[in-house]
Design a protein around this nucleic acid. Structure first.
Lengths: 227, 227
DNA sequence: ACGATTGGTGAGTGGCACTATCCAGACTAG
DNA sequence: CTAGTCTGGATAGTGCCACTCACCAATCGT
């Protein structure tokens, strides 16, 4: 398969494929001549993976590369692969001014939460930082919130994780298993948040507004900033 | 309070505050003279809100403006406010090439899920689109996944939403209530995903790897693309 | 033989979130 | 009253990202 067919079959423009090749997201094709290379189904699949991670999930191209590289390098090692994948941060997350990149910084609230839940997680997991920073931010906005308020959510997260792992364990092939683990972890995130919003609207309607919800009569559809 | 004090107290650079003023994220101060204006605590608070939404949550400046505007316009109308806020999409979410902006497009899988859960949510809720697109993407990657696989998550989302609403209902002042509703919905999202990851690592360790988790011995801390 | 296509490269584009510079007017210390 | 600093407002510039375009010699299809 040559580049044009790859483009046609994936829906990704020719020039963009070349860009991904340059950035190392897509491995080069098997060169058959000085100006000719052959691509195969693995390239097509990888292209779809890239678009899924950057499109649905909103990862930056660089972050997607890291996930993909980790997947390629640690095929079959589900546990370690997930550990690596957790280290990748989505695009635009994290205040640019706040240089709090120290991995081993103390995150006391996350630690207390982890302890209270009886969880066994590494001190380096960046999720700890996210939790502490979120709590700090909420309190800076005069909202009373501490790690104990997160306990019910942690319990629900635990069940969510059990579902995740249950599903992954149905896969026997270790290579496939590792890949699915990462994809389900990452790609499901927007969907889970979407579910929460649907449930919130439902709950809000049930409790408060018996009349029609606002969303149907919304004036104009606002945009994030995308095309 | 003049602009410099606003800057000092918020930690946001002078020039950035001017930028926010230009973009309409921050309302102009009360002009006392041709080249002098007075800012107050509400400006400071709004500035903190902006940084929370763009920093912790990763919203684009334009999206943050929409949330803030909705909050200012619908103070006290929690239900409608949430409906509006749901329409805002985070930065970088959504494939740039895929022009699927039609609000009322059919999202059959989300509809089936909503139906199965017995939820009452508007057809215009953009969460529907996210769900359908996620499922389509997963299947395009040869992962068997349909709305029924999301049912357990939907149930957990329902409980999450109940926690959310429970908390919000403890607030009596309707103005404060609406604001907290939006903030907890938005700012908590990264933390909830972080909890899921912590729970996943814990569950993965418990089931699979009794040895040390990968995250502690990770070679280099990868970056999204941030600071 | 020859026009179309290919892989590769370098340069350009547009959007975003700032950041820097400038300016006339205003306040402040001496 | 003056010198120096600060202010709000405007314009232009910066850096980064994710592409996108243009070009080239080599190669392919006919």
């Amino acid at each position: 398969m040559r580049i044009s067919e790859l483009s046609r079959r994936s829906g990704v423009p020719n020039a963009t494929i070349k860009y991904y090749l340059r950035e190392g997201l897509l491995p080069p094709g098997r060169a058959t001549a000085a100006t000719q290379a052959e691509y195969d189904e693995t390239h097509l699949r990888r292209l779809r993976l890239i678009r899924a991670l950057t499109g649905v999930r909103g990862l930056s191209v660089a972050a997607a590369k890291q996930v993909l590289d980790a997947m390629a390098e640690h095929r079959g090692d589900t546990h370690e692969l997930l550990g690596i994948a957790f280290g990748i941060r989505p695009a635009g997350t994290g205040a640019p001014g706040t240089a709090d990149d120290d991995r081993s910084a103390e995150h006391p609230e996350a630690a207390a939460l982890v302890d209270a839940m009886g969880w066994s997680v590494s001190a380096g997991n960046p999720a700890r930082q996210i939790i502490d920073r979120t709590l700090q931010t909420l309190r800076s906005l005069d909202i009373e919130y501490d790690w104990q308020a997160l306990l019910p959510y942690a319990e629900l997260a635990e069940r969510t994780a059990r579902h995740d792992l249950d599903r992954i364990e149905t896969i026997t092939d270790p290579l496939e298993k590792a890949e699915h683990a990462v994809l389900l972890t990452f790609l499901l995130e927007p969907a889970l948040m979407a579910l929460r919003r649907l449930a919130q609207e439902n709950e809000s309607t049930a409790r408060h507004g018996g009349d029609g919800p606002a969303s149907t009569a919304r004036p104009a559809p606002p945009e994030g900033h995308g095309p």
